[in-house]
Amino acid sequence: MSGIQFENVSKYYQDGAGSKLQILDNVSLSVQPGELVAVIGPSGSGKSTFLSIAGALLQASSGEVTINNKNLNQLSPNQVSKLRLDHIGFILQTSNLVPYLNVLDQLLVVKKMKGKITSADKMFAKELLKEVGLGSKLKKFPEQLSGGERQRTAIARAFVNDPDIILADEPTASLDSKRAFEVVELIAKGVKTRNKAAFMVTHDERMLSYCDRVYRMNEGKLELVEG
């Protein structure tokens, strides 16, 4: 099964007094290629932890996470960073671009992490940037871009290594409504046309119309919101 699967995933921390701090409580979720799934919930509900586990940045305390048929529990730290590079595209809050790279290099650096940059890579990166409407800003640095443009660069960056899943962490956090809609629309479009399994953590309920399914996270439990 491709895409990403969570099976009874729990995450808890043991505090000093021996009591258990439960962040995620038996979460199960499956996202298939071509699907955009949103997880909403108040802050502190465990959304970010959930996303971190999905992105192989954090290990689940129990349960199994499978990305593209690979069980994350069985990977070494090096394999995990390789898995992130090859199979996961991150879109982070406020884009988090590298300040000294121009828009095109923001994408190429991901290619560079894998090895050599080929001219085909360059073509692909330019094509992606054209799709997000940055075709004319390839040589601009992040400080010369608006918030929306930065976030669109980050979207293109998430897709550049042709990952299997796309993870978005509050991608609209610092944007006004108009830009926010554009950004989510771009993510949705990318997910559909390139057939990626994507899930987005957000507290912005205006964006949910673009999503195939919406889950609500509450005190570590995940429940489907009926559309």
Partner: peptide, 8 residues
């Protein structure tokens, strides 16, 4: 961030 997107 670079590590998150896959830099070793």
């Amino acid at each position: 961030v670079m590590k998150a997107i896959g830099a070793s």
